[in-house]
Design a protein around this nucleic acid. Structure first.
Lengths: 138, 138
DNA sequence: TATTGTTATACTCTATAACTATA
DNA sequence: TATAGTTATAGAGTATAACAATA
């Protein structure tokens, strides 16, 4: 079998990302969290009182998709909403969310460590810069 | 807003891949093809008479998902099946599929060229090697 | 027994359009 | 008018389980 895609950076990027995402999803499964939910928790922790739209813009998740995601986290008592003005809501971690986010960070650290191991040490910074450059300007 | 994810190769990989995939999907939309369908056409062209399972293994697409994908391509008269033995079916491009695959290659080349532009020339080979290393051993 | 292909189903992420309430 | 959030819906990719037919 000939693989006509080995020299396509785009295809290799897709396969690499899919592999990494599958690993992350597996690890987060222990906490009953999906990757998108975990990243939202991390962003809220880093930005207390950030609004749904702000978090969505940072993560490139449309508000129509943020709404049910946030509702699930709220339903599990992981986050709380505080009205900012008549339409905006500040999001912050609830006590349960704070402890779970600590676990998320440990899980993500393990995942990232396993990933980084596969990147030659001398090229790690350049690799990261290149990835950022690929989606920069969105 | 603080982005707690800028230093995570895994997250940057995900964003870069998502951006590249969105660009590819846009471009392939002109041919009324989805990325998975386009890659299947390329693999069949490179490997005439490869079976559904073989193509699926190469692209890491489960046979349960290959079946409807192949059925769509066959329904559009892009590919044909030829029984190999009682259970295997060799896949090959139909005349319509051959000309469409030529267009696919042009579209993919444009897409990949735009992507490669964002990767510093001196690090392109290393970047590709690293991506392959990340999903190697699946 | 193992493999090929199929069916049915569900999950995750993403995308769009239409709507309300507020700024 | 523009923005925040919501609802409903659809698309694309992926995953699992179960199955019939064949090797």
């Amino acid at each position: 079998m000939i693989d006509p895609l080995t020299d396509y950076p785009g295809y290799q990027l897709r396969r690499a990302s899919a592999a990494a995402m599958a690993d992350l999803a597996d690890r987060l499964g222990v906490l009953d969290l999906r990757p998108a939910e975990a990243t939202v928790l991390l962003v809220i922790e880093a930005n207390p009182s950030a609004t749904l739209s702000e978090v969505g813009r940072l993560l490139r998740i449309a508000s129509a998709n943020m709404t049910p995601l946030i509702a699930r986290l709220e339903g599990r008592n992981l986050i709380e909403r505080e009205p900012m003005d008549g339409r905006s809501q500040g999001l912050m971690l609830a006590p349960l969310g704070r402890s779970l986010t600590r676990q998320v960070k440990a899980v993500v650290a393990d995942h990232e460590a396993a990933l980084i191991e596969k990147i030659p040490a001398t090229t790690r910074d350049e690799f990261l810069r290149t990835l950022r450059a690929i989606w920069a300007g969105e």
